[in-house]
């Protein structure tokens, strides 16, 4: 790939127009400039051909995660997807994310994600942090760069919700009330790995969060625009911890399963509905 490979020319787009009651792909044709991204094309169509075309976007720099859509059937940030990287001999389809209800055209109702986020206990520093080891005299945390790097991978997330969109548990099985989805597994992983966090998150990860439902197909990892290893680095280590702590045969034999007696009731009713 290089600058010289950038092509313009006439392209055909098929954009999904509709709302909760239904919709269809509508054909548009436009002259493109070299290096144009899908969002440029959609906004040009909005300006010149379809002024009521609804699209959610903001930074146009792949930093805010607003313009997620399914381009040629694959979830992508429209602002980061170049037209000349898509096959030139066929129309480009642009559809809203399917795991969430459409509001109109390319805009979906992602509010469920915000309700899930609210369920997750926020970072809470441990009480009695060790002076000089965990906190200095100015009240600043003392943390290793290695810990920072580990958490930072997950904190790169821009909440485009494309991992949620491709997750089978959410997209195909519609189990939004039983599984928080990769985005929030990752969020809990970043909190869980914070060396100074004082919350035992295991129950929430396993029960309300429903980590057991993930069957490790790694679809989330494949679509992440930030290249976060969601499955390998966030979900699998947490799955292992759940298994270790909940099902350790020796601990069971001794009757001291760490979370025994503190288990929360089955959470189905209190997790947010889609």
């Amino acid at each position: 790939m290089s600058e010289t490979a950038m092509a313009g020319g006439t392209r055909r787009l098929q954009i999904w127009r509709g709302d909760l009651t239904g919709g269809e792909l509508v054909d548009y044709e436009l002259e493109t400039e070299p290096g144009m991204v899908v969002l440029d094309a959609v906004l040009e169509i909005q300006r010149s051909q379809a002024p009521d075309l609804a699209v959610r976007w903001n930074c146009k720099a792949a930093k805010c995660g607003s313009c997620s859509a399914e381009v040629n059937g694959r979830p992508r940030l429209m602002c980061k997807t170049r037209l000349d990287h898509l096959p030139a001999d066929q129309p480009i389809t642009v559809e809203p994310m399917r795991a969430f209800p459409p509001i109109r055209d390319l805009v979906t109702d992602v509010s469920w994600n915000y309700r899930v986020n609210k369920q997750i206990t926020p970072f809470t520093p441990r009480e009695n942090l060790k002076p000089g080891v965990e906190i200095n005299e100015k009240g600043e945390f003392l943390i290793d760069q290695a810990d920072t790097d580990r958490m930072s991978e997950f904190r790169k997330c821009i909440e485009c919700f494309m991992c949620q969109d491709v997750c089978h548990i959410l997209r195909d099985h519609r189990m939004h009330n039983r599984y928080y989805g990769p985005r929030f597994m990752m969020r809990m992983a970043s909190l869980d790995m914070h060396p100074l966090d004082g919350v035992d998150r295991l129950d929430q990860i396993a029960d309300e969060g429903g980590i057991g439902l993930c069957n490790i197909t790694k679809c989330c990892t494949e679509v992440c625009p930030e290249g976060i290893h969601i499955t390998d680095n966030a979900i699998i280590p947490m799955k292992e911890r759940v298994v270790d702590q909940r099902h350790d045969p020796l601990l069971k034999l001794l009757g001291c399963t760490p979370n025994k007696g503190r288990r929360k009731p089955p959470p189905r009713a209190e997790t947010p509905e889609l």
Binding site: E140, I143, Q145
Partner: peptide, 17 residues
């Protein structure tokens, strides 16, 4: 410093500040 106490994570010095 307050942001750190609210969970923000920043790059560290060798002294871990």
């Amino acid at each position: 410093r307050e942001l750190e106490h609210w969970g923000a994570v920043f790059d560290r010095t060798p002294q871990r500040t």
